[in-house]
Simulated scan of single mutants.
Amino acid sequence: MVPNQMVRMNQGQGETSYTRNSSIQNAQQNRMKPLIEAAIVDFCSSSINTGSLFPRKMLIADLGCSSGPNALALVSIALEAIHNHCLQLQQTPPEVCLLLNDLPENDFNTVVKNLVTLRQSNKPLVMIGVTPGSFYERLFTSGSLHLVCSSSSLQWLSKAPEHLTRNQIPAYDIDEHARRERLPIVLEAYAQQFREDFTLFLQLRAKELVSGGRMVLSLIGRPSYIIDSEFFHLWEIVAQILSVMASEGVIDKANFDSFYVPLYGPSCKELREIIQEEGSFSIREMREQDPTTDYDNAFMTPSRFLNHLRAIFEPIIVQHFGEVMDEFARTAERRWSVEGSMQDERARNPRVMLVVSLAKA
């Protein structure tokens, strides 16, 4: 199942690259550290308690690893946790295989270059591999994985909701009245697509994980205090900028109406319900975290925030509209030129990071 839009971050080392604009994602990965460490200890302890030997090998996968400085963060945390746990128990470290996954368009060349440093560490590392492909399809052999990690990736859907694309219902209408009228339809379509995709993700990983295998996942969601009728797009700020460009004739309105970003932020309640209904995993821990505590003052400036948006959304915008990013930047700067307007806009679009630790039932 391949997404019908180019879902990848901006490549390279430039000012608007993901490499130079991913500090917030890195902070979220660091917040996952205690859950990954606990998952490692719990899995190893469970093996011993059920009469098995201490694991002799472990396969660990990061799904949606992207590129840049964050690509190895989660697997490095897991590797360190295994090393420390073995030292504490005076056990021989298991052989470890690290597997990195993202879509084929990902900048795997940069990732592979960074792997050299990791292989030179003194940790119990044997093999590293990359696995291009969508995590909404089978990626690994049955019963082979011991730990799956994923950060800031599962909010991306396999595709835009078919009900909207098939019936040509804009995801974000320029006219505010029409947008509010269509809101329930748009919400239900995106929520249903996320439910289908995340259910499939759980089913696939349940086949690939060993008995008692663990998953630690984080994704962007919406705060629990926001009710369904107040639904917002994770990409609403981008949509607002593009809607101004459409109203001014910079981009074609019909083209704007057919722009669907395959991105959805669930609530904590939604996530819990899907996991419980699918039934392959038990929830060990679930957290709702405020990502704004990871922002520094520099991130609050319009230029820095604009680079952050471009690092994430530029490939999918350019694929749909062509080379419009210079005008996109000018429109955003003009929109935010009023003092406090950018902060106000971001305050109207609150986000949370949902973090969940799962054990295969």
Rank of each mutant, 00 (worst) to 15 (best):
Met9Asp: 02
Gly12Glu: 04
Gly12Ala: 09
Thr16Leu: 14
Ser17Val: 00
Tyr18Lys: 08
Thr19Pro: 08
Ala27Trp: 09
Ala27Arg: 09
Pro34Met: 10
Ile36Phe: 01
Ile40Pro: 03
Asp42Gly: 06
Phe43Met: 13
Cys44His: 09
Ser46Pro: 01
Ser46Gln: 01
Ser47Tyr: 03
Phe54Thr: 05
Ile60Leu: 11
Ser66Ile: 05
Leu74Tyr: 10
Ser76Met: 14
Leu79His: 04
Ala81Arg: 14
Ile82Ser: 13
Cys97Val: 14
Asn106Ser: 05
Thr110Ala: 15
Leu115Glu: 05
Val126Leu: 15
Thr131Gly: 01
Thr131Ala: 08
Leu139Tyr: 03
Ser142His: 10
Leu145Gly: 11
Val148His: 08
Ser150Ala: 07
Ala160Trp: 03
Asn167Ser: 06
Ile169His: 03
Ala171Thr: 03
Tyr172His: 01
Asp173Thr: 07
Asp173Leu: 06
Asp175His: 11
Arg179Tyr: 08
Arg180Met: 09
Tyr190Gly: 00
Arg195Ala: 08
Arg205Thr: 02
Ser211Trp: 06
Leu217Val: 09
Ser218Thr: 06
Arg222Leu: 03
Asp228Pro: 01
Glu230Phe: 12
Glu230Met: 00
His233Tyr: 03
Val238Pro: 02
Ala239Ile: 06
Ser243Glu: 11
Ser247Ile: 04
Glu248Asp: 15
Gly249Arg: 10
Val250Asn: 10
Asp257Thr: 07
Ser258Tyr: 12
Cys268Phe: 06
Cys268Asp: 02
Lys269His: 04
Glu270Met: 00
Glu277Ile: 02
Glu288Ile: 03
Glu288Arg: 01
Asp290Phe: 02
Tyr295Pro: 00
Asp296Asn: 13
Ala298Gln: 12
Phe299Ala: 13
Phe299Lys: 13
Met300Thr: 15
Pro302Asp: 15
Phe305Gln: 11
Asn307Arg: 08
Leu309Lys: 04
Arg310Thr: 06
Ala311Thr: 13
Phe313Arg: 14
Ile317Arg: 07
Val318Met: 04
Val318Asn: 07
Glu327Lys: 05
Gly340Tyr: 07
Asp344Cys: 10
Arg348Trp: 03
Asn349Pro: 03
Val352Leu: 05
Val356Asn: 04
Ala359Cys: 05
